[in-house]
């Protein structure tokens, strides 16, 4: 059963990632990206990391995907339907294939294939303890950064003279 879920999630993630970039309408691409982010949450559940999966669904599918779809609808324009230039397309395919094949061959030549999961999966309590005790300062900085980026985004998107 986990094997079947793994194969299904793999197919879903790769096809939706490609469709997000290649769909004619950007809105469909945005929805496809949201499905791709959901399938990543599925991988996290398969990897015994339900907390990360929950976080992924809340932050990505709940907030970021909705934000993206919103923006796409705000700046929607028929002009986008024009096709990308063939030259860039070819360079992109070559570049992507080169990166993929290079990393793939690199990993096939190691002994990573024989590594099997061992030990217990981390519990929520352990994650919380490590996050607060060892990385508490990083957590504070992250909170500051989130607040700063939110204020920055609001300032950027604000329309002048409409107070």
């Amino acid at each position: 059963m986990p094997e079947l879920a793994f194969v299904a999630l793999t197919v879903l993630a790769v096809t939706t990632a490609i469709f997000a970039l290649e769909s004619k309408e950007v809105v469909y691409g945005a929805i496809s990206l949201a499905i791709m982010l959901l399938s990543m949450a599925g991988f996290f559940i398969l990897l015994d990391a339900p907390f990360v999966a929950m976080f992924q669904v809340i932050v990505y599918v709940g907030a970021v995907a909705v934000l993206i779809i919103f923006t796409v609808m705000l700046v929607r324009e028929e002009k986008w339907l024009k096709v990308e230039s063939g030259m860039l397309q070819r360079i992109g395919v070559i570049g992507g294939l080169a990166v993929g094949v290079a990393f793939g061959l690199l990993m096939l030549n190691t002994t990573l294939g024989s590594v099997i999961a061992s030990g217990e999966a981390a519990s929520y309590a352990q994650i919380g303890i490590v996050m607060i005790n060892d990385y508490g300062a990083a957590l504070e900085v992250l909170a500051l950064l989130l607040a700063a980026s939110l204020i920055g985004a609001l300032m950027l998107a604000r329309v002048d003279g409409e107070e």
């Binding site: 992109g92 990993m107 099997i116």
Partner: peptide
């Protein structure tokens, strides 16, 4: 599944991302 299978998915997604970043 083994570690390698998951890393291959990661590589595939990375390659798709590089393709999009260059060509779009």
């Amino acid at each position: 599944e083994s570690l390698l299978q998951y890393l291959m998915i990661s590589v595939a997604l990375f390659a798709i991302g590089v393709y999009g970043l260059v060509s779009k």
